[in-house]
Amino acid sequence: MSRFLFIVELCMYLGFFLLPLPRPAHAQAAEQQAPESAPTPRSTPWAGLPLTSLSSLGLGTPTLFRGESTWQAPITGGGFVRLSILPDPGSAEREFSFQADAATAMAAPPFQVWERDGVEARGDGIGLLLLRDHNVIIVVRHQQGGAFSMAEALRAALVTEAPSGTWKTLQERQGGEQRAGWDSCGRWWAVP
């Protein structure tokens, strides 16, 4: 496929998904710099996002959730990203529905809703955006209004296979000794 055709196809896909979004100036700028390797819709689960790539995405050291395939990392300049990897798109869809409900204590928040091909999003795209891409849920709180572009960059960095190695190993003592930890994408594992 030529580079031109690829970009056209990419724009068509991104356009469908993102057109309803409010477009703050920085979001527009980010879209103009959309990565050429943006993911295509998938039916197989994502492995997640390699934690080694966080700094290049403007994120700090992640906090890994014990017992969960979830991590949260600060955004340089303020805010944070929380990313959860669920076993399959179905469970992620249910979890996303709950997460969207819990995302704000405000009754009837003026959030927009997008959905297509296993990808759905809620929020204003400025300071808050929740996004599900198949089995991955991303929550972005951006103090400088770049929630949209950050979510887009994170989606583009998702991988289907985690790089080899572990991110961190623990010696858990809850109810007996066990080894546990997170893989290179922040997925929790435990060996009794």
């Binding site: 906090t63 959860s84 997460q99 995302a103 704000t104 928040p109």
Partner: peptide
């Protein structure tokens, strides 16, 4: 937004997670 920074719920309202280490550092 009335949104959280240091806590989240996973799978239901009875399963909150509080990021204590991030809170004490105000990350």
């Amino acid at each position: 937004y009335g949104a959280s920074a240091y806590s989240s719920y996973r799978g239901g309202w009875g399963n909150a997670t509080f990021l204590g280490s991030d809170f004490v550092e105000r990350r």
